[in-house]
């Protein structure tokens, strides 16, 4: 990899002060470091958020699960509090990458990186989470803006994600057998405001499947999704899955998620 200046700030404010346009935030590095190793990224500065106290805290109150940006996937998966409040979220975290990636990779890194095939964006969107930064909060529906693109400004750091506790939810993933990223992942949540269906892996970024939501609002059961498919036009089409296959898988995974969520 190219060389860079390494920083390990002790606070979010200090981290924000270190940001420049060629800097990269390191929140675990399980996506960033492989990219840098292949010389596909050349940051002038790497700002390691791993030393900021409190940034990895996980807390649950009655209706909200809040997870700090540097909480690892393993810690979310192993959190009894998370599993008690939103088992689907703990389950999703337990299926990201592999054990070693989960021991280091973080929710903040995953969400801010917005890899089209990452798992967390499905939960963020599916649960209607709120994304907290050093300067504001952003609604999930406004957050993912494109391939590896989010609403985060250059000098903005994602600090925590709060997830409202749903009535029921499940995440079902169809993993790429090589990379184990999602070819298609569908997060279904039954919330007090209605059903949300979020899809990752299939498109340029995570998106909601509104026709499925409408059907499930009328009847929260797998059979309600019979004959409902997302359009394949805008879906990813690559070596691992055609757009048509992905569209089919979205329906299958959505049904399985509804079933897993008790529908």
């Amino acid at each position: 990899m190219y060389d860079f200046n390494y920083h390990r700030p002790g606070s979010v404010d200090e981290a924000v002060g270190l940001i420049n346009e060629d800097a990269k935030l390191l929140a675990g590095g399980q996506s960033l470091l492989p990219t840098m190793k292949l010389r596909l990224a050349q940051p002038s500065d790497v700002i390691d958020l791993g030393g900021i106290p409190g940034l990895s805290d996980i807390s649950v109150d009655g209706s909200t699960v809040t997870i700090g940006a540097t909480a690892t996937h393993a810690s979310v998966a192993a959190s009894g509090a998370v599993a008690g409040a939103i088992p689907a979220l703990a389950d999703l975290a337990s299926g990201i990458g592999d054990t070693q990636v989960r021991n280091v990779g973080t929710i903040g890194g995953s969400v801010a990186n917005a890899d089209p095939a990452a798992d967390y964006p499905a939960a963020v969107l599916g649960l209607g989470a709120t994304l907290h930064t050093n300067s504001r909060t952003i609604a999930a529906d406004d957050f993912f803006t494109g391939i590896f693109e989010t609403a985060l400004a250059e000098n903005e750091i994602l600090t925590k994600v709060s997830f409202p506790v749903p009535e029921a939810a499940a995440y079902v993933k169809f993993a790429n057998p090589a990379s184990r990223y999602a070819i298609v992942g569908v997060f279904v949540a039954k919330t007090s405001d209605g059903v949300r269906v979020a899809v990752t892996g299939a498109g340029g970024s995570a998106f909601r499947a509104s026709a499925m939501e409408t059907a499930l609002n009328a009847n929260f059961s797998a059979s309600a999704l019979d004959g409902i498919a997302v359009a394949s036009d805008d879906l990813n089409n690559d070596l691992h899955a055609s757009a048509e296959y992905r569209a089919h898988l979205v329906s299958v995974m959505a049904k399985r998620a509804v079933q897993a969520a008790g529908g």
């Binding site: 390494y6 390990r8 390191l26 590095g29 399980q30 470091l33 492989p34 190793k37 790497v46 390691d48 791993g50 393993a74 054990t99 070693q100 990636v101 021991n103 280091v104």
Partner: peptide
Amino acid sequence: GKSVKACTTLALQ
């Protein structure tokens, strides 16, 4: 105490 891929973490981390 946790297993980690040593190729994907900086020494400085």
